[in-house]
């Protein structure tokens, strides 16, 4: 654990909570892509299956549980509780164009051909492009609300801080994970937009 990793995790947590609170306080999910939020729930579900198989630390377990819980709560607010405010007409990105190629890539390029490892790889690839429905929606409607911009900034900052974390870990621990790094660079570039 280094300072970039910790601030990256906290920035990620801040992004998730900003979005959840925004929807809760305004009682509206206008301008938010439900499809991106479903993809993020899928990302966390497929990545954190190791909750069932291995224990790393209390920090690790609690953050994973919080991320999964918040992402499902967000999906629930958008599609159930405040679905009257959900702007489905503008949320028209075809997610199968992301999920199918990403699934194929995860089967082809992974560290180990085992179910859990392929699902972890799938989640890494999917996370890097999961924001595209949200960016597509903003491009269709024109402007994003200020809070949505804060949400996107925190999410982008999180991945940028992880890049610094990987540089740190490469120099000080010899740690190097090509799949995470390439996907992380792609993801950071998308958020720079």
């Amino acid at each position: 654990m280094n300072v970039f990793r910790l601030t990256g995790d906290l920035s990620h947590l801040a992004a998730i909570i900003i979005l959840l609170l925004k929807i809760w306080k305004t009682r509206s999910c206008a301008g938010i892509s439900g499809k991106s939020q479903i993809l993020f729930a899928l990302v966390f579900t497929t990545r954190y299956l190791d909750l069932l198989t291995s224990f790393i630390s209390l920090y690790n377990t609690s953050m994973k549980v919080i991320y999964i819980g918040c992402s499902y709560a967000t999906v629930y607010l958008i599609y159930m509780k405040f679905r009257a405010t959900y702007d489905g007409n503008h949320d028209s990105f075809r997610v199968e164009f992301l999920v199918v190629p990403v699934g194929g890539l995860a089967v082809l390029i992974n560290h180990d051909f085992s179910p859990l490892e392929i699902l972890w790889t799938f989640s890494i690839y999917l996370e890097s492009v999961a924001i595209l429905p949200q960016l597509f929606m903003i491009s269709k409607t024109g402007e994003a609300e200020t809070i949505t911009t804060h949400y996107l900034f925190c999410l982008g900052l999180y991945r940028a801080l992880y890049l610094f974390n990987w540089i740190w870990r490469y120099y000080f621990e010899g740690f190097f994970d090509m799949i995470a790094i390439v996907a992380g660079v792609v993801q950071t570039v998308l958020y720079c937009d």
Binding site: D9, Y67, A180
Partner: peptide, 10 residues
């Protein structure tokens, strides 16, 4: 390569 058990990052 990396095994899933070693994925300590979130």
């Amino acid at each position: 390569g990396m095994r899933v058990e070693e994925h300590d990052e979130l």
